[in-house]
């Protein structure tokens, strides 16, 4: 099943991280656009982080706080001069608090075409057992 909507994409400027008070990364840091959705079994997170290579992506889950950081390596040639600059290039940073208990050992991350896909499976709850009381 695919989306049938064919609306025009609007140009959006990237949002800079609002409170860089504790920032230790050099350069500009952006908040990537994300989709987060949940089924009974897992939470899936999709984030647009164009330009980040897999080796420069850092995902960290500590207690219930999920943090991911993507650092961009400069890719322009040494003698390139700017003519028109409409977007800035910078790192990505975003942090979430997860409400459900996540099975940390089964977290799976993929990076394809600049989109990070993070599967966060929930801990399997113990199946409720019916206990029969014997008389005798």
């Amino acid at each position: 099943m695919t989306d049938t909507e064919t609306k025009e994409l609007q140009a959006k400027e990237k949002t800079q991280v609002a409170t860089p008070a504790e920032q230790t990364m050099p350069g500009i840091v952006f908040t990537p656009a994300v989709d987060i959705f949940e089924t009974d079994k897992e939470i899936t997170l999709l984030a647009d982080i164009p330009g980040v290579e897999a080796k420069n992506l850092n995902i960290d889950l500590r207690d219930d706080t999920l943090t991911f950081t993507g650092v961009i390596e400069p890719f322009e040639g040494p003698d390139e001069e700017d003519i028109l600059i409409e977007y800035e290039v910078g790192s990505y940073y975003r942090q979430f608090t997860l409400s459900e208990v996540i099975d940390q050992s089964k977290i799976d991350a993929q990076l394809n075409d600049g989109v990070l896909r993070l599967h966060l499976p929930k801990v399997e709850k113990a199946t409720p057992r019916q206990i029969t009381v014997k008389t005798g």
Binding site: G77, E80, I83, E86
Partner: peptide, 24 residues
Amino acid sequence: AAGVFPLINLTEDKEKFYVRAELP
């Protein structure tokens, strides 16, 4: 900005123009 998706960065060196756009 032109306000049209995708936003574009245009650079040049002696040999070429480079047009870049973020299309995740």
